[in-house]
Nucleic acid binder design. Structure first.
Length: 197
DNA sequence: CGGCTTTGACCAGCGC
DNA sequence: GCGCTGGTCAAAGCCG
């Protein structure tokens, strides 16, 4: 389960207070998915069969207020393809429709993203032999939804679509931030907490 | 017993 | 207006 470098050390709590982190560590930053306007955007290269921590929790909060012209981004990185989409409707309020989709190679459909999901529906969709599963964040007061379906062209790929923004911390993820020395921006990242920690 | 999954029914949006 | 499709609801059953 150690697909992320051990950057969670020293952050045993999950509060959002900016913590110092080694900015030189070449690890996946959650902000890689958020700060799409950065030309130097570097897609993660070390994903294993388990997924990255998903960004919806922070997306729409403030980090891409200036990025309203984003509409569709596709990132290919080895086994993983990311399709990130903002509202797609200019002027629409992002916090209501914040959406991001992952297409990644995975044997399991339910990705362990640190959040707790409750399945509330399953539907076979047109043009796809595979059913689509509907999940809702089981945390009280959190209305984030997620759709999971297998790629109809390549069933070894799972398409996961997150819709909404978590209004709470993930129970299974330690979040930490690091400040970019150039832009001064705070980047938010997450690491899965090992079961024995 | 509580929380979860399953699954058929229902509803709303959209195109014709 | 009607039918199709996607999304959600809710009852029933399962499981730890």
């Amino acid at each position: 389960m150690a697909h992320f470098p051990s950057r969670s050390q020293g952050s045993s709590s999950s509060n959002s207070t900016p913590l110092h982190a080694d900015a030189a560590a070449p690890a996946f930053d959650l902000s890689d998915f958020i700060m799409f306007d950065q030309a130097e955007f570097a897609p993660p290269s070390s994903f294993g069969p388990e997924p990255p921590v998903v960004p919806p929790m922070v997306d729409g909060g403030r980090s891409n207020d200036q990025n309203s012209n984003l509409s569709n981004i596709t990132i290919n990185s080895g086994d993983m393809t990311v399709n990130a989409r903002s509202t797609g409707v200019e002027g629409e309020r992002r916090e209501e429709t914040s959406r991001i989709a992952f297409r990644m190679k995975s044997e399991v459909e339910v990705l362990n993203d640190g959040f707790k999901w409750r399945k509330y529906g399953k539907k076979s969709v047109k043009n796809s032999p595979n059913p689509r599963n509907y999940y809702r964040c089981s945390t009280e007061g959190c209305s984030v939804k997620k759709r999971v379906e297998r790629d109809r062209e390549d069933p070894s790929y799972v398409i996961t679509t997150y819709e909404g923004i978590h209004n709470h911390m993930s129970p299974g993820v330690v979040y930490y931030t690091t400040q970019d020395s150039v832009s001064g921006r705070y980047y938010v990242a997450g690491c899965q907490v090992p079961p024995d920690s």
